[in-house]
Write a protein that binds this DNA or RNA. Structure first.
Length: 800
RNA sequence: GCCCGUGUGGCGGAACUGGCAGACGCGCAGGACUUAAAAUCCUGUUGUGGUGACACAGUACCGGUUCGAUCCCGGUCACGGGCACCA
């Protein structure tokens, strides 16, 4: 058969479409499988080969599961709100909606050209009102349950995008969208209380099948620490300075305290602080430093000692000085610390520089050189001196603090609440109303969706206001509670809102009564397997788990965790080994590959290129190798005869069925394809294969190269679609060889191989091995010390 | 600094989690076909020595456990990712 991939691919894509082969059934007796890939943001650049790799894994798994008799839900949609479309709209003076529609079409064409078996009847787009209606609905539920609040704090702000960012959106101090430096500004913003779900998000990880690296990353992002809050009094006044510490047992080693420069208590007592000028000067200096300088570069300790403001150590009533220093952050703990220079390196450096006492309270190390942070026996610590490990001494001190009402156990998280509003146009309008009498009121549910109004100009205002603020007809409204004049919130939701629940919409995408029918949720959820990028672990993955836990708590979904299993793909690098980027000119367009080699070649190559989870560079020559392989497959019918199965190929065939079946499940696609390549080499050597063997072969290959395999399937006179025919079974007994070659070692070095029956007994194997001339040579004149025989594996003679 | 992960031919990568290191593919070399080239097919391809069957070395480096280590243990180095004055 001539391999006319263009004709074949078009033909079968059309046939699958017409016959609705990949549409999932909401009422089926088959076992269900919900396989999910991260729906794309439809950028103007179109799909990237990285998208193809990300989707191909679940595509292969979904196709295999269908053939194995599962009712498969494999949906796709578009995460279509977002800044890039809006920025492009501003630049080209078009509407973000029009751009989005165009981009979505482009993405769809590309996906269809690759032949992904998505259920297109369930396509969604987060920027459509019948979708974002429910995003707003969930937001209102969060608001109703007190998980939305407004606060004026220091927030991450991107001066380039003119937008407030969440902590997750500004990882590493860079804007997630434009990569420019993020600055800290005091701003009044809406927060979602994700911290209230910190423990649920942590505990939930025990119930799901995620790779360890992903769990670790979420755990360290949430950053839970257990410790104690301890109250220090201020000498001469009735005021407490509360600190958070993980080592309350070192209280006897506290020789000073440090407050963050922004600490509000300072302003309250500025009349008492006799060197207030120095405080203000220091604050001004700190404000000039960028976040980068403050946290990364300048580790040199700076600070100012407060005059007239002295603390008292609660355990020994000693007076200790208080400093302000920028190594203490307002955003973590209480914004103040007790400093134990003997056992904390930062406090140690500060004490050395400012000449403060250092009192050792844990035995070990050399305090004249550096802080000792290890474990050990407590010293100089009154009633704690009996303890020789931190677990016991912390427990004893905690008990003491609670009894004396000096402090209590406490928990801190590094994760912060989710800054949720964006001062931009192309997002879901936040459905809140500001009423001068009633305060903030939610838009009534029956008024949803709160539609994004048409505007002339998408530029954000220089005053940091959303473009929506300029539209009086949108802003001015009546309060749903009191009927008085009120104003709408004009900010929109962040990029991550629509994607925080999209997998739920897929189970019932056209429902206009609810975000999804509870029965369908019960049937399809949780997602059985979710593949996506490592870059989403502390963003989308965390956010969507949070929303789903919330929906579970209010009884809207049936499980707390949305995804039973998660996997990830490695990056495709450019052929130069660098990350693909437009500026480097090393980007590969999937459609170019489809055009030149065919979709089946592209699909096979992205999975054959290496370990699925590892990054690997693109290689045009290796793509050709995959094309060559498929051309050989296309010519297989020529050597297919009507004869009975070739017995010499039988065990090879069964081994391959087993390997491909198992390797797909463990995402070892490269070795699955390699096994199929090996088998075709065997076929070619044999010169003729049976029709049945060929049928099995194309079934195994079909998840990777479905178009070609459907074509051969038809050519063989089979009716119906290969895509939903039965996956081949293998006979375990036939995967085992009757005779096997095993290595014979002398002193651990292989000297010969012998052919033995698989279950050969030691008594028979040994003489056979010894009679090998190559082995004899090394045994002669030596004393045999030991004979090791591991059936099926190895034979080893130890000689002296 | 802390936490994960990785390190194997010229290249991408295999190796049942302790049992013949280098499957499969790319590249390269030689050959067949061709007037020639491309395509295709066949053969070879870890390094060193030898015409040769063969010998020795070899999975980042140093050491250990074992009859036997790419795999396990201790230490070192390099690269990638995450977190980071987090109290």
């Amino acid at each position: 058969m001539r391999y006319n991939y263009k004709k074949i691919e078009q033909k079968w894509q059309q046939k699958w479409d017409e016959a609705k082969v990949f549409e999932a059934d909401d009422h089926s007796d088959k076992p269900k499988f919900y396989g999910l890939v991260e729906f794309p943001y439809p950028s103007g650049a179109g799909m990237h080969v990285g998208h193809i790799k990300a989707y191909s894994s679940m595509e292969v798994i979904a196709r295999k599961r269908r053939m194995q008799g599962y009712n498969v839900l494999f949906p796709i949609g578009f995460d279509s709100f977002g800044l890039p479309a809006e920025n492009y709209a501003i630049k080209t003076n078009t509407h973000p909606h029009d751009i989005t529609v165009k981009n979505v079409e482009k993405f769809k064409d590309q996906m269809k050209a690759v032949g992904f078996s998505f259920d297109w009847s369930r396509e969604i787009s987060t920027s459509l009102p019948d979708y974002y209606k429910w995003t707003q609905w969930i937001f209102l539920k969060l608001f109703e349950k007190g998980l939305v609040f407004r606060a004026k704090t220091l927030v991450n702000y991107c001066p380039h995008c003119k937008v407030v960012l969440s902590n997750e959106d500004s990882q590493g101090g860079k804007c997630d969208i434009c990569k420019s430096d993020v600055v800290q500004l005091p701003k009044d913003v809406w927060y979602l209380k994700i911290t209230e779900y910190a423990d649920k998000l942590l505990d939930g990880l025990d119930e799901v099948d995620y790779p360890e690296s992903i769990k670790q990353q979420e755990v360290s992002w949430i950053g839970k620490s257990t410790g104690a809050f301890v109250d220090f009094s201020i000498a001469g006044i009735d005021e407490k300075l509360t600190i958070y510490t993980t080592r309350c047992d070192t209280l006897y080693g506290v020789t000073f305290m440090v407050m963050a420069p922004e600490h509000p208590l300072l302003d309250q007592y500025k009349d008492r602080i006799t060197n207030w000028d120095a405080v203000e000067q220091y604050r001004a200096d700190c404000a000039k430093k960028t976040e980068f300088e403050r946290t990364q570069l300048v580790k040199d300790k700076t600070g100012v000692k407060l005059e007239g403001f002295v603390a008292v150590n609660p355990v020994n009533s000693k007076e200790i000085p208080i400093f302000i220093a920028d190594y203490v952050m307002m955003g973590y703990g209480t914004g103040a610390i007790m400093a134990v220079p003997a056992h904390d390196q930062r406090d140690y450096e500060f004490a050395k520089k400012f000449g403060v006492d250092i009192i050792q309270v844990i035995e070990g190390g050399d305090i004249s050189e550096a802080a000792y942070t290890g474990d050990g026996r407590m010293i100089n610590s009154d009633f704690l001196n009996a303890y020789d490990n931190k677990k016991d001494s912390i427990a004893a001190m905690l008990e003491h603090l609670e009894k004396e009402k000096l402090g209590h156990k406490g928990i801190q998280y590094k994760m912060k609440d989710w800054a949720f509003n964006r001062q931009r146009y192309w997002g879901e309008p936040i459905p809140l109303i500001h009423c001068p009498k009633c305060g903030t009121v939610g838009v009534p549910y029956e008024e949803l969706p709160l539609r994004l109004p048409e505007v002339e100009n998408f530029e954000p205002g220089t005053d940091g206001q959303s473009p929506l603020a300029k539209i009086d007809s949108f802003v001015n409204c009546t309060c749903p509670k009191c009927g008085g004049a009120a104003k709408r919130e004009t900010d929109t939701m962040p990029q991550w809102a629509g994607s925080s629940w999209y997998f739920l919409r897929f189970v019932d995408p056209h429902n206009d009564k609810a975000f999804a029918d509870p029965e369908k949720i019960k049937y399809w959820m949780p997602v059985d397997w979710y593949n996506g990028g490592m870059e989403h672990v502390t963003r989308h993955l965390l956010y969507s788990r949070f929303w789903h836990h919330f929906l579970y708590d209010i009884g809207e979904v049936n499980t707390p965790e949305p995804y039973a299993k998660r996997s990830y793909q490695g990056l495709i690098l450019g052929s130069d080994g660098e990350k693909m980027s437009k500026s480097k000119g090393n980007v590969v367009d999937p459609l170019d590959i489809v055009e030149e080699y065919g979709a089946d070649t592209l699909r096979t190559y992205v999975l054959f290129m290496g370990d699925y989870q590892a990054a690997a560079p693109w290689n045009d020559d290796a793509v050709k190798g995959c094309k060559r392989f498929l051309e050989r497959v296309a010519s297989l019918p020529e050597i297919s005869t009507l004869s009975e199965e070739d017995p010499s190929l039988e065990s090879k065939l069964h081994k391959t069925i087993k390997k491909v079946t198992e390797d797909i499940e463990s995402m070892k696609f490269n070795t699955a394809i390699a096994a199929l390549m090996t088998l075709i080499n065997d076929f070619t050597k044999a010169g003729a294969i049976s029709r049945d063997d060929l049928l099995i072969y194309i079934k195994l290959l079909s998840p990777f190269a479905p178009h070609l395999c459907e074509e051969i399937h038809e050519l063989l006179g089979e009716t119906g679609f290969l895509a939903i025919s039965a996956w081949p079974d293998y006979d375990e007994a036939k995967t085992k060889d009757a005779t096997i070659e095993i290595g014979v070692q002398v002193n651990g070095k292989v000297r010969a191989t012998v052919s033995l029956p698989a279950d050969c007994a030691k008594e028979e194997a040994l003489p056979l091995a010894k009679s090998e001339p190559a082995v004899q040579k090394y045994l002669e004149g030596k004393t045999l010390v030991k004979e090791i025989y591991v059936p099926g594996k190895i034979l080893n003679f130890v000689v002296k």
